[in-house]
């Protein structure tokens, strides 16, 4: 019995050791032989932890940011036409569009930092389903803020999902580096955006319930311009 345990411990120990030494062994091999071994054939990637299993959700998250960035750009465009003429609302949504864009680029860089690659085709079923309905981004003031709030909550929950995957102690998924990155780069920022938008809907729905909705919207837009 003892011997079996001993042997199996030794066996796993050598396995672990081998896993750590792939790159070095490959390099030794490559330097020895006369035939040139290409760099990509060496086991010397930046990959460790659970990036292989988490990668597709991160890729999706990038693509979802791009899609939302374009949607916010359309919302901003609508508020900037001469009939709407709401510079504050334009600024709000243009800012969101810019942020989603830059966050997407940073997330691509992050995936590659972990030894992964980008796939622009990865999309969630939920996002694909949205395509089936007619999309409207020419919205009234209050509706636009409501739409943005829904979008931001969806993105926040998606970050939770990636975090959940990365925090599962399941083999091949546990990756504290990924979950920590999601926390620092997404989760807290999203909390503030969601709170801000929820506050806007509170204000706007109260203001629009009063006697002069037009003046209220004008003043609210002025306020947004200064944010």
């Amino acid at each position: 019995m003892k011997a079996i345990i001993c042997i199996s411990v030794l066996f796993f120990a050598t396995l672990a050791l081998a896993a750590e030494d792939y790159c070095y062994k490959d390099v030794v091999e490559a330097c020895k032989t006369t035939t040139k071994k290409s760099v990509t054939a060496l086991n010397c990637t930046a990959k460790y932890g659970a990036i292989d299993n988490l990668q597709s959700k991160l890729q999706r998250y990038v693509n979802h940011h791009f899609i939302r960035s374009f949607e916010y750009l359309l919302m901003a465009t609508h508020f900037a036409n001469y009939e709407k003429n709401r510079e504050g609302f334009e600024k709000l949504f243009r800012g969101f569009s810019d942020n989603k864009w830059h966050e997407a680029i940073e997330l691509i860089k992050y995936i590659t930092k972990r030894g992964g690659e980008m796939n622009f085709n990865e999309l969630s079923e939920g996002i694909r389903d949205e395509d089936k309905e007619e999309q409207d981004f020419e919205l009234l003031e209050l509706s636009s803020v409501a739409k943005a709030l829904d979008i931001e909550k969806k993105l926040a929950l998606e970050a939770f999902q990636i975090h959940e995957d990365a925090s599962r102690k399941m083999n091949g998924f546990h990756d504290p580096e990924v979950s920590s990155h999601i926390e620092h780069e997404f989760v807290h920022k999203q909390r503030d955006i969601v709170r801000k938008l929820a506050g806007y809907t509170t204000d706007l729905s109260e203001l629009l319930n009063g006697p002069d909705a037009s003046l209220s919207l004008y003043l609210f837009d002025e306020y947004l311009q200064k944010q």
Partner: peptide, 19 residues
């Protein structure tokens, strides 16, 4: 926008994802 355009059909101005 400066020329008074884009008062309608803005929702379809950009395809959703340009893979």
């Amino acid at each position: 926008l400066m020329r008074g355009e884009l008062t309608n059909n803005v929702s379809k101005l950009i395809k959703r994802n340009l893979i």
